[in-house]
Amino acid sequence: MDVIDLRDFYSQHLGIVARRLINRGIRARWPSARGQRVLGVGYPTPYLGLFREDSERCIAFMPAAQGVLKWPTARPTLASLVDEYALPLPDAAIDRILLVHALELSDDPAGLLREVWRVMAPSGRMIIVIPNRRGVWTRTDSTPFGHGRPYSRSQITELLRQAWFTPTAWGEALFMPPVAGSWFLRSALAWERVGAALSLPFAGVHIVEATKQVYRVSPARRERVRLIPRLEPVLVPSPTSRREAEGGGK
């Protein structure tokens, strides 16, 4: 999907409700980002408004294959088109990173996470909003969550560990079916409360918080030592000196 498709979805009634429900889950993990440097990767602009006012800096990076839109619309631009595998930031530059519509649409999700690991501060935190493989939202392509590769909880955990992250908290959102009917939209919050209380498995997205593994243990490998017998040096005359010695004897 490109940015036009994503923008159109979030301008519809279903997209507005989805944004509110996901924002509710993000806010539960990060109630404040005061004084923090916040980065969103993918298409995070519907959710970065939570942190734009109180953070030290809040910027959005959108992958080149997806495209970019000006954000915010009435202020100086804080969004940029980037290569998602070579983010234009120095090491350990960001305190909070939010990934939305990123991993499931990436050709190399492990490479993207390693680049995120590079730019994250040692005490940084990351939230990933990613489609749930068992959810209803992944079974329809009328929403962005039905595109790309969805993940189960075990798959996300394995991917994060391969990229040197540790999952620390889990949440879900979008328990309501992806139906734009007025009754479903009005009852969306009730769906969320019932689904969270009963731990129902068919939520539309996972909301995963993870931290950076600063020290990663690598297994030690003992090198095989080839034993060579010790030889004493022996003086051997060269062929020239040997002929001279023979000629002198004659």
Rank of each mutant, 00 (worst) to 15 (best):
D2G: 14
I4M: 01
R7E: 14
F9Y: 15
F9H: 09
Y10I: 06
Q12M: 05
Q12W: 04
V17F: 01
A18K: 00
I22H: 02
N23V: 00
N23C: 15
G25V: 01
L39E: 08
L39A: 12
G40R: 03
G42C: 08
Y47I: 03
L50I: 10
S55N: 10
S55T: 10
I59W: 15
A60H: 01
A60N: 03
M62N: 10
P63A: 14
G67D: 02
V68Y: 02
W71Q: 07
P72L: 05
P72V: 04
R75P: 00
D83M: 03
Y85F: 11
A86D: 09
L89V: 02
D91W: 06
A92M: 00
I94N: 01
D95K: 09
L99I: 13
H101P: 00
L103W: 02
L103F: 03
L103K: 04
L103D: 01
S106N: 07
A110R: 14
R114Y: 07
E115T: 05
V116Q: 03
W117R: 15
R118N: 10
G124L: 09
I128F: 06
P131A: 09
P131F: 05
N132M: 08
N132V: 04
R139Q: 15
S142T: 13
T143D: 06
G146V: 08
P150E: 11
R153G: 13
Q155N: 09
T157G: 01
T157F: 02
Q162K: 07
F165V: 09
F165T: 01
T166G: 04
P167H: 08
A169L: 13
M176S: 11
G181R: 04
G181T: 15
L185M: 14
L185S: 02
L189S: 14
L189A: 14
A190Q: 03
E192V: 07
A197E: 07
L200E: 03
P201A: 04
E209V: 04
T211R: 11
S218N: 03
S218F: 10
E223R: 11
E223T: 10
L227T: 12
L227C: 02
P229V: 06
R230S: 12
E232K: 12
R243N: 09
E244Q: 11
G248F: 06
